[in-house]
């Protein structure tokens, strides 16, 4: 059952990822991305990394893809008005093929990674409780700094987009 589910989710997410690239309509592409992420979350569940799976669903599928959809709908792009692709330069084509070849090759040969004995690996951060303990003790300083990061980002959005009196924005 385990390998079957793993393969099912793997194929599902790859098919959906291809859908993101091939879809002409931006909304459909974003929805394909959502499905692909759900597939990856399924992979994590079958690997018993539940926290990672739920974080992926919450953050990426929930927040980021929803943001994409908002932007796409705000911009109101039509699927038919797509510019024709330029022909890629020879160097770029060769490099792209080499990259794909390297990817497939490493998949076939399985790279140099030997699968470690999973029972011996400490599962730090695998459960939410341990993860929270770590965040509030060892990694307290980075968490505090991230607070400042979010504050700066919010201020930046306000400064760069708010309408101020006496400010003629470029059209």
């Amino acid at each position: 059952m385990g390998p079957f589910l793993f393969n099912l989710f793997a194929v599902f997410s790859v098919v959906c990822a291809a859908g993101v690239v091939l879809n002409k309509n931006a909304v459909n592409a974003a929805l394909c991305l959502l499905l692909s992420l759900v597939g990856v979350a399924g992979l994590f569940v079958s690997l018993e990394a539940y926290l990672l799976a739920f974080l992926l669903l919450l953050v990426y599928a929930g927040a980021i893809v929803a943001l994409f959809l908002f932007i796409v709908m705000l911009l109101d792009t039509k699927g038919d008005a797509r510019p024709t692709l330029h022909k890629l330069p020879l160097l770029a084509r060769v490099m792209a093929f080499a990259l794909v070849g390297a990817g497939v090759g490493s998949f076939v040969v399985r790279g140099q990674l030997e699968s470690p004995d999973l029972s011996r690996t400490p599962a730090l951060g695998a459960s939410l409780k341990l993860y929270a303990y770590q965040l509030f003790t060892t990694y307290l300083l980075p968490v505090q700094i991230l607070g400042f990061l979010l504050l700066v980002a919010m201020l930046g959005v306000i400064v760069l987009s708010k309408k101020f009196d006496g400010l003629d924005d470029i059209k």
Binding site: V152, A153, G156, V159, L160, L167, D168, D169
Partner: peptide, 13 residues
């Protein structure tokens, strides 16, 4: 991220 904002600070240009 702070520098992204600072670089585009003169948003009228």
């Amino acid at each position: 991220i702070g520098l992204y904002i600072l670089v585009s600070y003169y948003r009228t240009t």
